[in-house]
Write a protein that binds this DNA or RNA. Structure first.
Lengths: 335, 335
DNA sequence: GACTTATGGCTACCATTTACGACGTTGCAG
DNA sequence: CTGCAACGTCGTAAATGGTAGCCATAAGTC
């Protein structure tokens, strides 16, 4: 592999000049620049990234820590991050935290140890304090899906409470009054925020919140199954179910269909996230759109702007969810 | 940040000894070893990865190139790769090829330029020749989802033809004789292999293959929608539809339901891949299991074994698909 | 006393970046 | 017209933080 020395020799210049040609084009004469470029091409020279990183103390790599890689949620986000970053020749190192504090911290250390220039974090278990302290370290971080007021400018997040509100308001407006709610795990921030929105909507319509109609799921399909069985077996009256994400809705609906209940004839459903499958399951899901891929892209842009000093980039921190009305919810008693 | 020199000084030993402690534990006394370890802990010393990479010319990083990041398919694979590799302190750099030859090659170059120790590739557009040549380069590669006889030991793949065969045989055994097939894009290897299996099953049951009953989709939900509409509008008779993947099944079923057709009453469906959602959509999908996550894990193990010389690891190259019978296919005429 | 084991001390090497300084040219003021 | 400062252009050499190999030395073992 050709080194910068070879290029310098071939071009008849010093290695510093070659380096200058590669980096900032400042102060290098046009003629020599062409000579150097020609020499690089002839030798098929590629700078050694290791040496570059060592000397410049920057790796052009971004660590991305997500909670999980499978599931319909993080793929689109990762895809956006990758493409935005790659376009500027940065690369992405991934790690998974599994929503467990210890593993999240471990992953952060891992990424830091790898010399990432910055971190994009989607973490749930770790404390606000930890993140605040981390943000004061040498390596910049940006948070996806989480809002911490002390470092709000580094947070890219969705207004989850509004989303929860919109979902429940929709069924209220359709006329439902007995509404069950399948929450995400209460230890997750977005789960409690969505639930808050739900309560807010109920209050607005003067419908009392009943704890017995709210069951905690795990954000997975199985969680929806279990929650729905529990709800149905409790023999409580309800005509609509709002779920904190689409995966749980699909699990819940599958239980209903198995028991011969019609959806949305007997029971209306509203989901959350608008995952790709939401429009292909039957009935098509009425849900709240979660622009997770845009948030991923925005996180990448934030970095480009703040770390690599690429200005003229507009960054939005907070995203607003929107209701997507499809076929899984309708008026009560309308069979 | 503390350097190896600081550690040596603090521990009162030489730099060489520190290096010995970190790498191979050869010939270093227990007492001094403890001193060094203590000094490292006190100084919170972490070896500078850039310098390590430069000096050793190995980065402990693996490049993973997939076709896409969204969709239900690659997430589980990536998850397995990440966890297997991380357990041994390697890290994963991702890139996306989008099934376009130019982008795939570009991504390979990108990964190579990043100094990856090895590459895991899931590529579709690039030629066999390119991959064979690549495999002879300095950086080892392993292929997922593709079989090339010249480099078969570096291929981790599924017997797609068998899978296609199993899917179609299932509906044949149920009594169907008029069977439509929604293929994946013909430019993809697995798509043509699956179709081959389909034809083989037909032949075995003496059912002639009709090209008019076979339409090409794009492996996405929308492709299933379009294909199904085309099939239905063609006014041909068929009682079962075999789709080359689950995403297209879900699109196809949604069309049927919209048109008032009962599934599986009027039309039976069999899918392929057994994506997580397959069991939660209604009806639950009968499909062919594709152990993609195991294949990801196996690719990682292959690397550990072959690159990092971690022996005593068993590697399987070819995986066999299995039929998963659920509720989307039943006897014809059984309403 | 020969042999082994543990350790230190050097040095070469890896491929860059970057601070510093040298050199020649230019423009402007005296 | 000349002297000098400023500037653009380039080279030199010192970091950067490790790895790895060699040889010397010391201590312990049979």
């Amino acid at each position: 592999m050709a080194t910068i020395y070879d290029v310098a020799e071939r071009a008849g210049v010093s290695l510093a000049t070659v380096s200058r040609v590669m980096n900032k084009n400042t102060n290098v004469g046009e003629k020599t620049k062409q000579k150097v470029l020609a020499a690089m091409a002839e030798l098929d020279y590629r700078p050694n990234t290791f040496a570059q990183s060592l000397a410049s103390n920057s790796s052009n790599s971004i660590g991305v820590l997500v909670s999980q890689l499978d599931g319909p949620y993080y793929g689109p986000m990762m895809a956006e991050i990758e493409s935005a970053l790659r376009a500027t020749n940065k690369h992405v190192i991934i790690a998974v935290g599994h929503s467990v504090a210890e593993q999240e911290i471990d992953s952060v250390e891992f990424l830091l140890g790898r010399g990432c220039d910055a971190l994009i974090l989607d973490v749930e278990a770790v404390s606000d304090e930890y993140l605040i302290e981390l943000s004061q370290g040498a390596t910049p971080i940006v948070l996806i899906n989480r809002y911490i007021s002390d470092i709000s400018d580094r947070c890219i997040y969705l207004d989850n409470e509004l989303g929860g509100y919109l979902a429940t308001r929709h069924v209220l407006e359709l006329g439902h009054r007995d509404i069950a709610y399948v929450s995400g795990p209460k230890r997750k921030h977005d789960a409690v925020e969505r639930l808050e929105g739900h309560k807010k909507a109920l209050a607005e319509f003067d419908v009392p919140y009943k704890a017995s109609l709210c069951v905690e799921g795990d954000y997975k399909e199985d969680g929806g199954v279990v929650a729905m069985e529990q709800l149905l077996d409790s023999a409580q009256r309800f005509t609509a179910v709002v779920c904190a994400n689409d995966q749980m809705v699909s699990g819940a609906i599958s239980v209903c269909l198995e028991r011969g209940l019609k959806v949305p004839g007997d029971l209306s459903f509203v989901g959350y996230d608008n995952i790709p499958f939401a429009r292909y399951i039957s009935p098509k899901l009425t849900t709240v759109n979660n622009p997770i891929h845009e948030m991923g892209k925005m996180a990448a842009l934030w970095l480009l702007k703040n770390i690599y000093k690429n200005d003229q980039l507009e960054v939005t921190n907070v995203f607003v969810p929107e209701l997507v009305v499809r076929g899984s919810a309708r008026r009560p008693g309308n069979k």
